[in-house]
């Protein structure tokens, strides 16, 4: 057997063994971090005690109108005066505004960050800005803006917008870099400027990806918007934090169930909306029925 053949066989073996080796190494690293595995033994019992004594049943008074200010809504929709509704709506507003602002601000930076459109120095300096925005999680940005502008949704919007610029910008420049190169060649041969190429070729060509990412970002911002309220940046998180401090876990679990249902709904709307902006645009659009139910149930 020749030396090259032996090398090739070893190479193939290494490629196949790599996932297994990565898994084993993760176990070894984990084991190194944990000093006492025995602590796991009582965890299930602790969970059941916590659920039975503190979490369950949820206290649904959170969807009842607040005592003050006095609710003027019709009795049928008086839940709109509840802390759950007010907090949820504020979180949705923060997510919506910060996604729109974040997208508007991130798109020009991501156009500059794309390596297929710009010289390396411009591309890497733009990536540096995006990475700086992304390096801190949204909750840290929220603390920062609460210090700067005080409590409330303003600091929430600013925090989520900055994080959106960093996160969405990365997704956008990766989509732009992945676009088909031939339209760029045609534009370059025609003598189009970078500005014209960006607006006439790059954005239309990658529009589906950009829209799909913006919808995903809205969904992401809503989920994270529930957290930033904990540090006083507005939204439903404010109420969760309030009841956590008073150890009223039954109210906290009610909020968490509401957030879970809304996240699920937004996720379904997001899947449905994004299906309009995929390459398979000519495929039949999924019905609501298809989005909600698994394929096996639809067949039946």
């Amino acid at each position: 057997m020749k030396f090259n053949e032996i090398l090739s066989i070893r190479g193939n073996f290494l490629i196949k063994a790599t996932p297994f080796l990565i898994f084993i190494s993760s176990i070894v690293v984990f084991n190194g971090m944990v000093d006492d595995w025995g602590r796991l033994s009582g965890s299930i019992d602790n969970l059941f005690v916590f659920i039975r004594e503190s979490l369950w049943p949820p206290d649904w008074s959170v969807i009842e109108p607040q005592a003050y200010p006095i609710c003027t809504a019709y009795p049928l929709i008086d839940f709109t005066c509840s802390t759950a509704w007010i907090g949820l709506l504020e979180t949705l507003k923060i997510a919506f505004v910060s996604t729109v602002f974040g997208m508007i601000l991130s798109l020009p930076i991501s156009l500059l960050a794309a390596r297929n459109l710009n010289p390396w120095w411009l591309s890497y300096s733009s990536r540096f800005i995006l990475a700086a925005f992304r390096s801190l999680p949204s909750i840290i940005w929220a603390i920062f803006f609460v210090i700067l502008v005080g409590f409330g949704p303003l600091s929430g919007v600013l925090a989520m917008t900055v994080y959106t610029i960093g996160y969405l910008g990365k997704l956008q420049y990766e989509a732009i870099e992945g676009m088909n190169k031939t339209p760029l060649y045609a534009a370059e041969a025609m003598g189009l400027s970078r500005f014209e190429t960006a607006f006439q070729v790059v954005i239309p060509e990658s529009a589906n990806d950009l829209i799909s990412q913006a919808i995903f970002m809205f969904e992401y911002n809503f989920r994270h918007g529930t957290v930033i309220g904990i540090v006083g940046a507005g939204g439903i998180g404010y109420y969760i934090n309030l009841y956590l401090k008073f150890l009223q876990y039954d109210k906290v679990i009610a909020y968490l169930i509401i957030i879970f249902i809304v996240v699920l709904l937004i996720d379904m709307i997001s899947i449905f909306a994004r299906s309009f902006f995929t390459e398979e645009g000519d495929m039949p659009k999924p019905s609501w029925f298809h989005v909600i139910l698994p394929a096996s149930m639809i067949k039946k």
Binding site: Y185, A186, M190, E205
Partner: peptide, 29 residues
């Protein structure tokens, strides 16, 4: 700008937009 016209082998069209949009890119150039 606009002096040179190029029809690449893989065409370089923008797949998601209309015929008119694609032709207008050349016309504008």
């Amino acid at each position: 700008k606009g002096i040179l016209g190029y029809v690449p082998q893989r065409l370089g069209l923008i797949r998601h937009t209309s015929v008119m949009h694609n032709v207008m890119i050349g016309a504008n150039a």
